[in-house]
């Protein structure tokens, strides 16, 4: 049995690392053996943040450099990430799940099916409620769209229910989940979906 590989993409600062930080305790509680790969644009800031967070042993967090191309390293040439995931599976037999965080990119970034079994796209409410209407490939093609920072909606003049409706509509009804990753809201729903769709347990 090999580990499920799950991609987490989305624009810069939308809350990808925050989502990982929020979901790790849920995964641990469910007994799902997890490791993480980060694709920081510069150095390995996110990897260091996750290691410092202490929710996973530091050696279960690998950083892959993206050569100034966060897109390329998850789509056109995902081999560095594939090799890192293969290495994690070799080093940690029995691993159930590998989360792969993309470097922050634009609405066009998508994950190669060579690299992941399932991927989610994380957007930020404060980026504006017109983002789903812009129909970027990330928003349309992701297996799950996460609309994070729902807590900020009243502060940035966003009609959250409308934004979620439009997201559902452009995605033809495929899953959309609103979250506040900083306060662990909505994150359990992501875990449920992963268990159903990719972990099968």
């Amino acid at each position: 049995m090999t580990a499920a590989r799950v991609g987490i993409g989305g624009p810069v600062g939308s809350g990808k690392t925050a989502l990982i930080e929020a979901i790790l305790p849920h995964l641990a509680a469910a007994g799902i053996d997890t490791a993480v790969i980060t694709n920081d644009l510069v150095t390995d800031e996110d990897a260091e943040r996750l290691r410092r967070g202490g929710q996973l042993p530091p050696e279960r967090v690998l950083a892959v450099q993206a050569g100034a191309c966060p897109h390329t390293v998850i789509r056109e040439d995902p081999t560095l990430n594939i090799a890192a995931a293969d290495r994690l599976e070799r080093d940690f037999p029995g691993l159930d799940l590998i989360l792969i965080e993309s470097g922050g990119d634009n609405l066009a970034s998508t994950f190669s099916p060579d690299l992941v079994d399932f991927w989610m796209f994380v957007i930020d409410v404060a980026g504006g409620d017109d983002i789903p209407r812009k129909k970027g490939p990330g928003i349309l093609q992701a297996d799950l769209l996460v609309v994070n920072k729902a807590d900020l909606a009243p502060h940035v003049g966003v009609d959250l229910p409308l934004m979620l409706d439009q997201a559902q509509a452009v995605r033809g009804g495929r899953p959309v989940i609103a979250t506040v990753c900083r306060r662990d809201q909505g994150v359990a729903g992501i875990l449920d979906l992963l268990r159903r769709e990719v972990l099968f347990r």
Partner: peptide, 11 residues
């Protein structure tokens, strides 16, 4: 250079 080999990330 489109052949995936990871080399794009090395300088």
């Amino acid at each position: 250079s489109s052949f995936p080999s990871g080399l794009f990330a090395f300088s």
